[in-house]
C-alpha cells in the first residue's frame, strides 16, 4: 500500500464498532487521498455500511478517530456535515413527494443556491434518464429509479467527500455507466469518493480497493496490484458442461481455487504451465474431451475470491 501523501481527504485510524456481542468493525485504518475513487468490497456483513455510517458521522465509533478534510468527525460531526454527502444503502425518499420535490427538499437542506440547483438537478436527472418523471411521486417509481433518485439527491450539493453505500444496486447498466461518468466528473473537481459496491466491474473502476472481511481490511491496493498479488495463476476451462468440469477439477493437485463462471470454470493453480496439461488429462479421464484450457488475466472477482477465501462476492 502506498503511503498517503499530504493530501489525505479521509483518514480513519483504529476504528472499532460493536453492536452488542457483534464486532462489526474491528480496528480499521483508512487513508483516502483527495480525488480518489476508493472502493470498499466485501461479503455481506463485512462491515461496509457500518464504516460508511461512522465516516458520515451518524454512528459513533467505540474507538478510533476519523478526520475528514481535516475536520475531526467524532468530536465535531456538525462541522463535517457540510463537507460530505452520504448516500445510505437504502436512500430515504419521501414517497408522497414528487421526484422534483424530493430533490428540492434535499437541495434546500444542503443550502444549494436556487440557480445551481436547477442546472444541477437538470444535469443529474438527464444522466439518470429521469427527466420525464419529474412530476411522478417517488413512491410510484420502480426500484431502480428510486435508487437513481437517491443518487441524484445525494449528489445535488457538491460535497468535498462523497460516501456512497452500494449506490448502483438495482440500477440498469446504462444508467450505471452514466453515473460513473458523473463520478469521474466530480473527481476532476477534487471530490473524494468512497463507495462500497457489489459489482466487480465497478470495483475495477476504483483507483484503490479495500477488501473487507469480518470487520477487518484484508488487502488494500489498486485493482492492478491486487491482481498481481493474487497467489498463483488463472486458467479458464471452457467446456459444454462447465458444472461437470467444475466437479472433475475439484481436488486436483496444484488447484488453489475454483470459480464457476457460467460457460466456464476459472481455476486458480500454483503453476499454469505445469498444471494445464495435467488438468486436460484429468478431464479427459473423466470423459470431458472437448475442454479448452487457456491461461487468462484474473478479473477482480477472481482476486476477491482468492484473497478472501471461499464464498462468492455480491
Amino acid at each position: 500500500m502506498t503511503d498517503p501523501a499530504g493530501e489525505v481527504a479521509v483518514l480513519a485510524r483504529g476504528l472499532v464498532r460493536r453492536f452488542g456481542p457483534v464486532s462489526a468493525v474491528r480496528g480499521i485504518d483508512l487513508a483516502v487521498r483527495r480525488g480518489e475513487i476508493f472502493g470498499l468490497v466485501g461479503p455481506d456483513g463485512a462491515g461496509k455500511t457500518t464504516i460508511m455510517r461512522m465516516l458520515a458521522g451518524v454512528l459513533r465509533p467505540d474507538a478510533g478517530e476519523i478526520h475528514l478534510e481535516g475536520v475531526d468527525v467524532v468530536a465535531d460531526p456538525e462541522r463535517a456535515k457540510p463537507l460530505l454527502s452520504y448516500m445510505p444503502q437504502r436512500f430515504g425518499l419521501y414517497e408522497d413527494l414528487t421526484v422534483a420535490e424530493n430533490i428540492f427538499f434535499y437541495a434546500t437542506l444542503f443550502a444549494v443556491p436556487a440557480r445551481v440547483r436547477r442546472d444541477r438537478s437538470q444535469e443529474l436527472l438527464a444522466a439518470a434518464g429521469m427527466l420525464p418523471f419529474r412530476r411522478r411521486l417517488a413512491g410510484q417509481l420502480s426500484g431502480g429509479m428510486k435508487q437513481k433518485l437517491g443518487l441524484v439527491c445525494a449528489l445535488i450539493h457538491t460535497p468535498r467527500v462523497l460516501l456512497l453505500d452500494e449506490p448502483t444496486t438495482g440500477v440498469d447498466p446504462v444508467s450505471r455507466r452514466d453515473f460513473w461518468g458523473i463520478l469521474y466528473g466530480l473527481r476532476e473537481h477534487g471530490v473524494t469518493i468512497l463507495l462500497s459496491t457489489a459489482y466487480m466491474d465497478e470495483a475495477e473502476r476504483c483507483s484503490r480497493l479495500a477488501l473487507l472481511h469480518a470487520g477487518a481490511i484484508r488487502h488494500c491496493d489498486t485493482p492492478a496490484r491486487l491482481k498481481q498479488a493474487m497467489p498463483g495463476a488463472l486458467l479458464a476451462v471452457v467446456t459444454r458442461d462447465a458444472r461437470r468440469a467444475h466437479a472433475a477439477v475439484e481436488g486436483a493437485a496444484g488447484v488453489l481455487g475454483l470459480l464457476l463462471m457460467g460457460d466456464r470454470v476459472n481455476v486458480r493453480v500454483d503453476d499454469a504451465e505445469r498444471r494445464a496439461p495435467e488438468l486436460r488429462a484429468r478431464l479427459a479421464g473423466q470423459g470431458i474431451a472437448d475442454a479448452d484450457i487457456t491461461p487468462i488475466e484474473p478479473g477482480i472477482e477472481d482476486v476477491f475470491v482468492a484473497l478472501l477465501g471461499s464464498g462468492s462476492p455480491a
Binding site: 458520515a56 457540510p82 445510505p88
Partner: peptide
C-alpha cells in the same frame, strides 16, 4: 416513520440542527 423509511438518517447527515 422517518426513522423506518431512512429519511431520518438522511436528514441527520445534512447540516440541519
Amino acid at each position: 416513520r422517518e426513522r423506518e423509511v431512512g429519511t431520518l438518517e438522511q436528514i441527520m447527515v445534512s447540516p440541519i440542527r
